[in-house]
């Protein structure tokens, strides 16, 4: 069954969607959308790093994403507004990544696949990496769920209840870096943040509790992945962007539903 590239693609898409959805909820709740953007744009630097040093792709991207996230953590609140800071770092990372990749002549033709993903080329080994990463992210977020929610609501209130908000922030950062690393093959550096944010945003009107929002987001992410794969196969469109387009369509749908209801 795993010999069929479509089955492998479907499993890869599902893995990333399921891990990204609950994490994406925190990205939306904490207003970290730009943070997700900057971290995923750093993924391209990670690709260059991996190719230049013979590191596995996953390792290179994980390092770059973690490095970017930690850098952002350190720099926020020192002068520049955080939106400006994120804008600088996100685009600087993307530009630097593009420049760095151009130094590696052998991969110049593959650039597109790192920018928008190449889900149809997912190997069995990629699947192992993706699902291990997805399971790690789900386990981290599930384990710390209540503490993460408390820290999101109010760091001071969390602290008074014995939750260390900085530790929870670090856990989120780590989960984000892992997600970026496993998602680059599926949707590419440009669209990883979309997979985090759009399903969560689309789930918001349908949820009355944080837990149900995460579950609905998982459903929306998974349907977008499977639906996008099917549509791209039929219409012969690039798969990653098709998945994201479908998620955006579902977002428009739930927003309309909410507008009609109220």
């Amino acid at each position: 069954m795993l010999d069929d590239f479509l089955v492998r693609a479907a499993l890869a898409g599902l893995g990333v969607a399921v891990a990204a959805a609950p994490l994406g909820c925190f990205v939306v709740w904490r207003r970290m959308a730009y943070f997700g953007d900057a971290t995923s744009h750093a993924a391209l630097l990670g690709v260059a790093l991996a190719l230049a040093t013979d590191l596995p792709l996953f390792g290179g991207v994980l390092l770059a994403a973690l490095g970017m996230a930690l850098l952002l953590n350190r720099l926020t609140g020192r002068g520049l507004g955080s939106d400006a800071l994120l804008g600088v770092l996100a685009h600087a990372a993307l530009a630097l990544g593009l420049v760095a990749v151009s130094f590696l002549p052998s991969v110049r033709i593959d650039l597109m696949s790192y920018l928008v993903g190449d889900i149809l080329a997912v190997s069995k080994w990629d699947l192992v990496v993706i699902w291990t990463g997805a399971a790690a992210v789900l386990a981290l977020v599930g384990w710390r769920w209540s503490a993460l929610l408390s820290a999101t609501l109010s760091p001071d209130m969390a602290r008074a209840s014995g939750v260390d908000p900085r530790r929870e922030e670090l856990i989120l950062t780590l989960a984000l870096a892992i997600t970026v690393a496993v998602a680059i093959k599926v949707v590419g550096a440009l669209l990883i943040a979309a997979l985090l944010i759009i399903p969560a945003a689309a789930a918001r009107p349908l949820a009355r509790a944080p837990e149900s929002m995460a579950l609905v987001a998982m459903g929306i992410g998974a349907s977008s992945a499977l639906g996008g794969l099917t549509v791209s196969f039929v219409l012969d469109t690039p798969t990653g962007p098709t998945i994201v387009s479908l998620a955006a369509g579902l977002f428009a749908l739930t927003q309309t539903l909410q507008a009609v209801r109220s």
Partner: peptide, 27 residues
């Protein structure tokens, strides 16, 4: 320690019932 902060702004994207809020961080 029980702590009541000065103001708590809950992001409108976070759906949270009063009952669930009371159960944070311990259910």
């Amino acid at each position: 320690v029980g702590y009541v902060p000065q103001n708590l702004v809950i992001d409108p994207t976070l759906p949270l019932t009063v009952a669930r809020f009371l159960g944070l961080p311990q259910r």
